[in-house]
Design a protein around this nucleic acid. Structure first.
Lengths: 349, 349
DNA sequence: AAAACGAATGGTAGCGCTATCATGACAGCG
DNA sequence: CGCTGTCATGATAGCGCTACCATTCGTTTT
């Protein structure tokens, strides 16, 4: 760009302006022979303009290769069509499946996902929330009902929909999830039904994965009601096949009379099951194994894994639908949705 | 806000303005006793202002609970610190691991990820790219080198870094990946070394997962050089344990003399291996099985899966680092980075 | 001592879009 | 014929922030 010759004595300095060479809506409007605001309407509220105006604007858009500047649009309208999604982990496929459900539903409605990962750190969550609020997100989805104080205050004063997913409970606004305490009870009931009495619960990093500890609470309550001890073994690596194998080894060492292991999730359970197989242990004869989540892997190991199926993609889809309903100004009849769970009995118990 | 009394004969109508009740930088500046621009600098270029000014601005931010409006900032500076990431699928954990690597590196530098999912549809990719350009993204990461015409044109005229990941080749700008043809060759070499001659390649939806078909090309080339036939079986469900089990069944039916199956990925291979186990087939005695990716699952089945390990998180991290280097104006010495792969031999071949 | 320089700060003018209000044209109605 | 109502369009004024240039003041250079 050659700047204009700096004509000397000009009193108004004619300040040099930056300019992105991008096509603007004004240029489109000019090419279409309408005012900028009509061009804007032609694109965003097509039924507010005449057919002829709409047509010539669309032609100009095509001809000039116009790409709308969404940043400017958001600033002017303070609506961004961005949805913040905050999850504690991407390694854990459970969250990814929820994201998948959210995404396919939200993208279809023209929303985009801003993704944040807290690594199970609530302070990190607070930082992400701050950033995302700065983007004037239309809504925020977060995994879990627990937040730190600052985050809670910030969100409580925010006037957009907040959707808390995964677990069920008294949330800030909208909530889609399942009852983890009940899920823990359910599996404990099943194990008792099967006649097991020496049952160990094995979890990984329960202070982080507090939903797993809620399941343990349910598990423990059921056993206590029968006067049965409910030992807990906590691993300090995150859930993985490897951790599951280690969990099995530790249980066998520390609680030699154990008949069944209730694992906090399927990764651990499958890891243990495959390890048992390698060691020539009979499942469930020598030791019974149960998990949680209903991952496909559990259906392909031998014996099939007893687990609790959680509808993860469905949870994401439902959360997205409820958000969309709310964002389009419709009434929300229920703030809380229980997606439930299903006991899936396999040969492993 | 009570609007000013509409003093009658005023020629300027004193238009009613919307106002979000959010704290603005001007309010912070006022509270801190400095000009708005100094407040801006105190937050974004701390070393451009005096210690006293910075301190009073930070105190005012704290006191008022100021959250920067990033939309406004982006519009004014035409820099957004958003990075668009476009992947074909979230079900396939491979892409998620790359995202993980990208995210942990980019978030640490203050960038946010805008996530898009094409579902293996290049037209969908084009739409996503359009949207993301509208957000003035600082850079764009896309999985793969193939784009449709419109997308290519759009990107070619875009003046921000573009990072194409997963595969290696002549890209639009930056490229981090591995040579899939070579990976296919590598596994074929291994299978020949092991003495197998009747080898079937099994893939799923190869027109979509074209990197798997590149691996097949490598595989086929190696076998052809030895004058060996390289039959291909294509499944039309996406890669999964279930599909792998079906693949095994189809191979046994259609090619009864098969000695080894080279699967397009580990999900398929592990599914086949677990199915073989259920059916009492000996691996590798009756049939050898090989995969691609190096998923943890492959190390936990018996026998361990022979596979090719691809450094997925590392790919994401490296891509992010290169982008950051480029975004911070440093010289880029290499536009192309080969992250390589490793043959991991297990008992399954 | 004059000139030159750098550091800290501020005034101004937008970034590209849309909300708000205003206008003009035309139809319906008593 | 004036009044009101609807429709399509446009002029104007920001949304909240930062780039650009100008200014001030204290320090260094010649």
């Amino acid at each position: 760009m050659s700047k204009d010759s700096p004509n000397a004595a000009s009193p108004s300095p004619a300040r040099q302006r930056r300019s992105s060479d991008q096509v603007t809506l004004s240029q489109v409007a000019q090419a279409a022979g309408v005012s900028p605001i009509t061009a804007s309407r032609a694109l965003n509220n097509p039924d507010k303009v005449s057919d002829s105006a709409r047509l010539s604007v669309l032609q100009a858009v095509e001809k000039l290769g116009y790409v709308p500047n969404l940043v400017a649009g958001s600033l002017a309208s303070s609506r961004s069509r961005l949805i913040a999604v905050i999850v504690p982990s991407l390694i854990n496929s459970v969250f990814v499946e929820v994201i998948k459900g959210l995404q396919e539903t939200l993208e279809a409605e023209g929303y985009q996902i801003l993704l944040g990962n807290t690594d199970y750190d609530l302070d990190r969550e607070y930082q992400l929330v701050r950033t995302f609020l700065g983007w004037s997100c239309s809504a925020l989805v977060t995994a879990g009902l627990r937040h730190n104080k600052a985050c809670h205050t910030l969100l409580a004063n925010w006037d957009h929909p907040i959707m808390e997913v995964m677990e069920l409970g008294k949330g800030m606004d909208l909530n889609v999830g399942l009852d983890h305490v009940a899920a823990g009870r359910c599996m404990a009931d099943h194990l008792l039904d099967k006649g097991y009495r020496h049952i160990v619960y094995v979890g990984a990093r329960l202070s982080q994965d507090y939903r797993a500890s809620m399941r343990y609470e349910g598990h423990k309550a059921v056993l206590k009601e029968k006067g049965i001890d409910a030992p807990l073994l906590e691993l300090d690596t995150l859930g993985s096949l490897q951790a599951g194998a280690e969990g099995l080894a530790q249980v066998l060492a520390q609680y030699p009379h154990t008949q069944a292991i209730h694992f906090a999730n399927d990764d651990l359970a499958a890891g243990a099951l495959l390890a048992a197989q390698r060691q020539g242990l009979n499942v469930p004869g020598d030791i019974a194994i149960a998990g949680f989540n209903g991952l496909p892997l559990g259906q392909h190991v031998t014996p099939q894994l007893t687990t609790i199926l959680s509808p993860r993609e469905e949870m994401g889809r439902l959360a997205a639908k409820e958000l969309i309903r709310r964002l389009s100004g419709k009434n929300v009849y229920r703030r809380q949705h229980d997606v439930g769970f299903t006991l899936q009995t396999g040969g492993s118990t």
